[in-house]
Amino acid sequence: MNRNYYFLTAIMFVLALGTLFIHERVVSPQISPSELLWDVLQPTRFVTTDQVAKRLIEKDPSLLLIDVRPAAEYDKYSLPNAVNVPIDSLITPAGQEYFGNPGTKVVLFSNDAILANQAWVLLRRMAFKNDYVMKGGINGWMETIIQPKEPAETAPESAFERYEFRKAACQYFTGANVANTGKSSSKVKVVFKRRKKTAVAAGGC
């Protein structure tokens, strides 16, 4: 009898000792491949540089610009108030704090739209919503907002209106206050509430 108890004590002790060396698996929600395919085919995730510029000028608090390029490129130049989350840190908890917060729209951008698009697919796979991709990336931003081209004389009225807006925006981002461009103002600390994870069981007595 007693020998069995020595045995059981030892087994329980070893099992408990084992828990010191294993770590809790953190599971993040995911969406199904078919759902992902459907979302990837939708063009609705793209926003134009004009839309982003307009929101920036209006100082829309719900807009969050995320630069997914490596930190070195971000340090050289980035959009105003953009936060740098390199694409490889999107899968870390620290990088994910910016996403899925209720009431914010996240706009991803990179040099062109490819890297940002990849980041978007990754985020969508992890079931984050309200993420967008800036069409054309920083290159597009340069061509349209910073150095807008005057439309041909035969162009429709709306093209001229857009040109007027772009000239004003260019003024806003470069001329009016030089210090306001680029990364200088981008190092803002953005504090977000951790988003509520998945459903939790109700319970208790």
Binding site: A16, G18, T19, R25, V26, T198, A199
Partner: peptide
Amino acid sequence: VIVTMVGLLYLSYFGWLNLSQIF
């Protein structure tokens, strides 16, 4: 108590139980 405590940690480690979802 100890069986459940230890068991929960192993279940989580093997990926069978998401501990953040329990009450």
